[in-house]
Amino acid sequence: MGGKGQFEDKWAYDPKAASLKPDSVPTEESDGPIRPLTGGLYIDDDPTAEPDKDIFYGYLRFTPPDRVTSVTSSGNPEQVARWLGPEHRFSSHGTYELFGAAISFAATSKSGTVLYQGVIGPGALTLALDSRSLINGHRAHRTYHFEPIDFPD
């Protein structure tokens, strides 16, 4: 962690164009950066669906010391928790960097990489993330909420 963010070479981040304004980024607390929670899943508040199709949710799982796993699934959080781990072969993986309450990471799968950056909300119960796919150029702003989950051993 620390130093320049991993987006320096991959994504020329323009705070003026981002949906997260610099004034909305909380400052670093005295005990260090705010960390994402690890005892559950962050779930996209805006699932995708097509008529007569399943609803798909974006899930993020953070594990120590600085790993993130990302997947899109029609499963509910309890179902996803049964199989989503740091080494799951059909999900995307990366490491995250923290800067106060700001977070950035790149999640890479066999298909390619998606870049994320945003802020961790109060109590780390929400994440507000801008993303950019290096696979197809898609950009999005999503809010994720934390749901505590007991993961199988």
Rank of each mutant, 00 (worst) to 15 (best):
T48C: 07
L125A: 12
D66G: 06
V119F: 08
Y57H: 09
P26M: 11
D54Y: 07
D23S: 14
Q117R: 15
I43S: 02
G5E: 11
T48H: 05
I34Q: 10
P122S: 07
P148I: 04
P26W: 07
D66M: 07
P122T: 04
F56A: 05
A101V: 04
Y116M: 04
S70R: 14
I43G: 01
V71L: 11
A49F: 09
D153T: 10
L20P: 02
E97T: 13
K10F: 12
A49E: 11
Y116L: 11
G121D: 09
D45R: 10
G100T: 01
L37K: 15
P33H: 15
L129M: 10
L60Y: 10
P77A: 12
P51D: 10
S24R: 09
R82Q: 15
Y96F: 15
E28T: 09
A102I: 01
N76A: 05
S19P: 07
G3A: 14
H141A: 12
V71G: 00
G58D: 00
Y13M: 14
R139G: 07
E87P: 01
K4S: 14
L134V: 03
G118I: 08
R61S: 02
D14C: 13
T72Y: 15
T113K: 03
Y116T: 06
F90N: 11
K10G: 13
V25W: 10
D66Q: 12
P65R: 08
S133T: 04
S133V: 12
H93C: 02
G75K: 09
T38D: 02
